[in-house]
Amino acid sequence: MKKVESTLENIRDDIKKFYDYKVWHFITMNGVALDGERFEVQWIFSRYEAMDESVIYYTVTEYDKIIPSIEDIIPSSIISQREVVDMFGVKIDGSEAGLYLDADSLQMPLRGCGL
């Protein structure tokens, strides 16, 4: 497992440069709550037909910043983006909330959880 740090501004370019759709397999997008108002966004990839080779692109950001969408680079990322929006109550370009949660259920269930 390799971790590559990036920033919110560069993450789209980094992934665009890195992602070759015949070599790398996009697993999912993930968020991890950190202390305070920060959280870590991760994009997890693995290589086809290689022994356990995975790469995580990550960036540490705040909850109120808008996270760029990578839907045009990886079409299948749309569903995991919607999940991150629901779970952390953040904003991602072009992803709406409401995949799992209704208006009257607990909002942002994973924000600040597990600390």
Binding site: I27, T28, N30, V32, A33, I44, P75, S76, I78, I79, S80, E83, L110, G114, L115
Partner: peptide, 17 residues
């Protein structure tokens, strides 16, 4: 207690296809 458990399930990732 664990800090984070992220479960990526197979059907979830197949919805776009």
């Amino acid at each position: 207690m664990l800090d984070r458990v992220r479960i990526k399930t197979p059907t979830f990732a197949s919805i776009p296809s």
